[in-house]
Lab assay of single mutants.
Amino acid sequence: EEWMVEKALMVRTGLGARQIESYRQGAWIEGVHFKRVSPSGESTLRGTTWYNYPEINKFIR
């Protein structure tokens, strides 16, 4: 699984929702560690946020 939603990321990493938000707003790079995608497939600020687990795992190492 490369891309996953927040709940799956929480299960895989043990991070809480606030921790994920903090990383997203600070250290993680949009387009690398996470992306927002609307149902139409376009990038957007209001779409579902998807997280790239392999890239996040590399960051944590």
Rank of each mutant, 00 (worst) to 15 (best):
47 G>F: 12
33 H>T: 00
38 S>K: 09
2 E>K: 07
23 Y>V: 02
56 I>P: 01
30 E>V: 05
3 W>K: 00
19 Q>A: 09
26 G>S: 14
35 K>Y: 06
7 K>Y: 12
2 E>P: 06
41 G>D: 11
22 S>Y: 14
32 V>N: 03
18 R>E: 14
10 M>D: 02
15 L>F: 04
50 W>R: 04
37 V>I: 12
39 P>A: 13
42 E>R: 07
43 S>V: 12
61 R>Y: 09
28 W>V: 00
3 W>N: 00
32 V>R: 06
36 R>G: 06
47 G>M: 11
56 I>Q: 00
40 S>T: 13
17 A>V: 10
52 N>A: 02
58 K>I: 08
56 I>G: 00
28 W>A: 00
43 S>Y: 04
28 W>Y: 00
11 V>I: 14
34 F>E: 01
26 G>W: 12
31 G>V: 03
47 G>T: 13
12 R>C: 10
48 T>R: 07
44 T>D: 14
17 A>G: 06
42 E>F: 06
40 S>Q: 11
6 E>W: 06
7 K>A: 14
49 T>D: 06
41 G>E: 11
17 A>E: 08
28 W>E: 00
42 E>D: 13
31 G>T: 03
7 K>G: 10
12 R>E: 05
28 W>G: 00
61 R>H: 13
53 Y>M: 05
50 W>Q: 05
44 T>L: 10
53 Y>N: 02
25 Q>C: 09
32 V>I: 12
53 Y>Q: 03
59 F>L: 07
12 R>T: 06
30 E>A: 05
35 K>N: 04
61 R>C: 11
26 G>C: 13
38 S>G: 13
50 W>T: 04
19 Q>F: 04
26 G>R: 09
29 I>W: 03
16 G>M: 10
37 V>C: 12
40 S>E: 14
5 V>R: 12
41 G>Y: 07
36 R>V: 15
48 T>V: 14
40 S>R: 08
32 V>S: 03
37 V>E: 13
34 F>H: 03
59 F>D: 03
29 I>D: 04
16 G>E: 12
48 T>A: 09
55 E>L: 08
56 I>C: 03
45 L>N: 13
54 P>L: 10
44 T>V: 10
33 H>R: 00
29 I>Q: 08
61 R>M: 15
37 V>G: 09
43 S>F: 05
2 E>I: 14
36 R>K: 12
34 F>P: 00
30 E>W: 04
29 I>F: 05
60 I>E: 03
42 E>T: 09
16 G>L: 13
52 N>D: 02
12 R>F: 07
53 Y>L: 13
17 A>Y: 08
45 L>P: 10
4 M>S: 01
2 E>M: 08
43 S>A: 10
24 R>T: 13
50 W>C: 13
29 I>R: 06
51 Y>T: 00
12 R>N: 06
15 L>C: 05
61 R>T: 13
39 P>V: 14
6 E>S: 06
31 G>L: 04
53 Y>G: 04
31 G>E: 05
49 T>W: 15
29 I>N: 04
4 M>P: 00
36 R>T: 15
21 E>K: 10
39 P>G: 12
9 L>C: 02
3 W>H: 00
58 K>W: 06
20 I>S: 00
24 R>C: 11
38 S>Y: 14
21 E>T: 06
59 F>W: 15
31 G>H: 04
21 E>A: 12
40 S>M: 11
45 L>S: 13
1 E>L: 07
17 A>P: 12
4 M>G: 02
41 G>Q: 08
13 T>K: 02
19 Q>S: 06
11 V>L: 14
4 M>L: 11
20 I>E: 01
33 H>M: 03
19 Q>C: 09
10 M>C: 05
3 W>A: 00
28 W>L: 02
26 G>E: 11
36 R>L: 15
37 V>R: 06
44 T>M: 11
4 M>Q: 03
5 V>K: 12
54 P>D: 11
9 L>V: 04
25 Q>A: 11
48 T>M: 10
29 I>M: 06
19 Q>E: 14
22 S>P: 01
42 E>V: 09
32 V>D: 02
38 S>L: 11
48 T>S: 07
44 T>R: 08
37 V>S: 10
7 K>M: 09
27 A>V: 11
50 W>H: 06
9 L>D: 01
39 P>F: 10
47 G>H: 10
11 V>H: 12
30 E>F: 04
24 R>A: 07
35 K>R: 09
38 S>V: 14
55 E>W: 03
57 N>C: 15
46 R>E: 15
27 A>P: 11
2 E>S: 07
34 F>S: 01
53 Y>C: 03
48 T>Y: 07
37 V>Y: 08
10 M>T: 06
11 V>T: 09
49 T>Q: 04
31 G>R: 03
55 E>M: 07
8 A>E: 15
58 K>C: 06
2 E>C: 12
55 E>R: 04
23 Y>M: 08
54 P>I: 14
30 E>H: 05
47 G>I: 11
43 S>L: 09
23 Y>F: 10
43 S>T: 11
31 G>I: 03
14 G>V: 02
40 S>A: 11
25 Q>L: 13
8 A>P: 04
1 E>A: 10
14 G>F: 03
46 R>Q: 15
31 G>N: 07
28 W>S: 00
8 A>C: 12
27 A>T: 08
28 W>F: 04
28 W>C: 02
23 Y>E: 02
60 I>G: 03
7 K>L: 10
39 P>E: 14
16 G>H: 12
60 I>C: 07
37 V>T: 11
35 K>T: 08
57 N>K: 14
59 F>I: 05
43 S>G: 12
42 E>K: 08
12 R>W: 07
44 T>E: 14
24 R>D: 02
46 R>C: 13
8 A>L: 12
56 I>K: 00
16 G>V: 09
61 R>F: 10
16 G>P: 07
46 R>W: 12
14 G>I: 02
60 I>H: 03
15 L>H: 01
32 V>M: 05
56 I>N: 01
20 I>A: 01
51 Y>C: 02
5 V>D: 15
18 R>P: 08
45 L>F: 07
46 R>M: 15
34 F>R: 01
54 P>V: 14
26 G>H: 14
10 M>E: 05
61 R>E: 14
60 I>Q: 04
54 P>Y: 13
25 Q>E: 14
24 R>H: 04
13 T>C: 05
36 R>E: 14
56 I>V: 08
42 E>L: 08
60 I>A: 03
48 T>F: 07
52 N>K: 02
34 F>N: 01
3 W>P: 00
53 Y>F: 12
59 F>V: 05
60 I>K: 03
2 E>V: 13
26 G>Y: 13
43 S>C: 08
54 P>Q: 10
43 S>H: 10
22 S>L: 14
41 G>W: 06
27 A>R: 07
42 E>Q: 10
42 E>M: 08
45 L>K: 11
7 K>N: 09
47 G>S: 12
48 T>H: 07
18 R>G: 12
7 K>W: 11
10 M>W: 04
16 G>K: 12
13 T>Y: 02
48 T>P: 06
19 Q>R: 05
4 M>A: 02
58 K>A: 10
31 G>P: 02
43 S>D: 13
20 I>T: 01
6 E>K: 13
44 T>S: 13
19 Q>N: 04
29 I>L: 07
2 E>H: 08
22 S>R: 12
39 P>Q: 12
22 S>I: 14
8 A>K: 07
35 K>Q: 07
10 M>N: 03
22 S>D: 12
17 A>N: 06
37 V>P: 06
11 V>N: 10
6 E>P: 04
18 R>K: 14
57 N>G: 06
25 Q>I: 10
24 R>Y: 04
4 M>K: 01
56 I>W: 02
35 K>I: 13
34 F>V: 03
53 Y>W: 12
49 T>K: 03
24 R>P: 01
21 E>Q: 10
45 L>Y: 05
8 A>F: 07
4 M>E: 03
55 E>V: 06
3 W>Q: 01
39 P>L: 13
56 I>E: 01
8 A>T: 12
53 Y>P: 00
59 F>N: 03
1 E>P: 09
8 A>H: 11
34 F>Q: 01
11 V>M: 14
8 A>Y: 08
3 W>Y: 02
57 N>R: 13
60 I>M: 13
27 A>G: 09
25 Q>H: 10
6 E>T: 05
46 R>D: 15
14 G>N: 05
43 S>P: 12
53 Y>K: 01
43 S>W: 03
34 F>D: 00
38 S>C: 10
33 H>D: 02
1 E>I: 08
6 E>V: 09
42 E>W: 04
56 I>S: 00
8 A>Q: 14
7 K>Q: 12
50 W>L: 15
56 I>A: 01
27 A>E: 11
9 L>A: 02
47 G>N: 10
48 T>C: 07
12 R>A: 14
49 T>V: 15
38 S>A: 13
